[in-house]
């Protein structure tokens, strides 16, 4: 669509496609940042209501402008860098985190045909990028020259590395069924089945993925790197102002990315399952983006729900859950999926 508009005003060829891509990037960036801002608002409201309080209420009607106020506040806050910190790395760390999280968005198809980079190794690319975010955390933990940050960084490294394995393995089943790593094709592959969602044959994978995704994004009950009652704020204890806000953003973008992978790989992306469309044919007229966002927000809601319900894991329990439960489950899932695929 954007390409056709650009070519209609007389810019064609490489330059045209480049401009179109830049516009697309700007749209995605803007929309995602807005979503991140409102994801914080959504979280505070959801957790607030779960905990029988109101959440933000003062800035704007029902606190709707709270994220804007927060953004402005973090921009104008004093940026403190501890005197003993490794300044260059200290400044780089939040950038790495946000970059790694935003980078994932490049391959996420938001609806049919709208994807920044429709590459064949989309899933692998996302794994690579989300592992990079651990670097941001480690760098932040190390460069702050604070023992609390350092411990948070260490915990995070161990956690991300262990859960990366489970996360990757849990999606192998999806790859086998869809015979592709391209996220658009994975979505299309789901349409071929009556259920239209891999969550039904891949319930084991989806379960492992969900838990690993919680750990990967450092969300409760796996928020050990920032466990506020133990390590105060973990790896970003020394950060303030906008740098702190960058980490915050990275966390929420990470959450959106993980939710979108889950939606794309297990819940049929922007499509609806065929059996629902058969019953309600009129739903096909609704744009795919709506379903995509709806599913993402459902996932994000689950994140918040879990956060407000469960206590925090202990470090060793977390490790043993990752290595002794999730990875074997994911492996079993792979074997079963492969056997079914081979014989049926």
């Amino acid at each position: 669509m954007i390409e056709s508009i650009i070519s209609s005003i007389g810019i064609g060829g490489f330059a045209g496609s480049m401009i179109a891509l830049l516009i697309k990037i700007a749209i995605v960036f803007g929309v995602v940042m807005l979503h991140v801002a409102y994801a914080t608002y959504f979280e505070r409201k959801v957790i607030g209501h779960i905990q029988m309080r109101l959440g933000p209420m003062t800035v704007g009607p029902h606190g709707i402008l709270q994220p804007v106020a927060d953004g402005i506040k973090s921009f104008f806050k004093e940026d403190v860098i501890p005197s003993g910190a490794d300044k260059a790395i200290f400044k780089l760390a939040p950038v790495v985190s946000v970059f790694a999280a935003l980078g994932c968005l490049a391959v996420v198809p938001f609806f049919d045909g709208f994807v920044l980079a429709n590459i064949n190794i989309g899933l692998l690319y996302i794994f690579a990028m989300s592992s990079l975010s651990a670097y941001g955390i480690v760098m932040a933990g190390w460069s702050s020259n604070s023992k609390y940050s350092f411990l948070g960084g260490l915990r995070s490294t161990a956690q991300v590395i262990s859960y990366e394995v489970a996360l990757g393995l849990s999606l192998v089943g999806v790859m086998i069924l869809s015979e592709s790593l391209n996220l658009t094709e994975i979505v299309n592959a789901q349409q071929k089945y009556w259920h239209g969602m891999f969550i039904i044959p891949q319930f084991l994978g989806a379960f492992v993925f969900m838990i690993a995704a919680f750990a990967e994004t450092n969300r409760a009950p796996f928020d050990l790197p920032e466990a506020e009652s133990e390590l105060v704020a973990g790896f970003f204890v020394e950060y303030s102002g906008m740098r702190f806000a960058l980490f915050y953003m990275a966390e929420y973008i990470g959450m959106l990315v993980m939710s979108s992978i889950s939606v794309l790989c297990f819940m049929g992306g922007w499509t609806l399952p065929p059996f629902i469309l058969e019953v309600f044919p009129s739903l096909a007229a609704v744009p795919g983006l709506v379903w995509f966002l709806f599913k993402i927000y459902f996932h994000v809601f689950v994140y918040y729900w879990i956060r407000s319900t469960l206590p925090r894991f202990r470090y060793d329990h977390l490790m043993s859950l990752g290595w002794k439960v999730l990875i074997p489950l994911a492996l079993i899932n792979i074997v079963i999926t492969a056997l079914v695929k081979y014989y049926c």
């Binding site: 029988m52 409760a220 928020d223 956060r307 206590p311």
Partner: peptide, 13 residues
């Protein structure tokens, strides 16, 4: 106690 262990909601209840 619950908040320290990470169960935030108990605290507010």
């Amino acid at each position: 106690h619950a908040l320290d262990i990470g169960a935030m909601t108990v605290f507010l209840y």
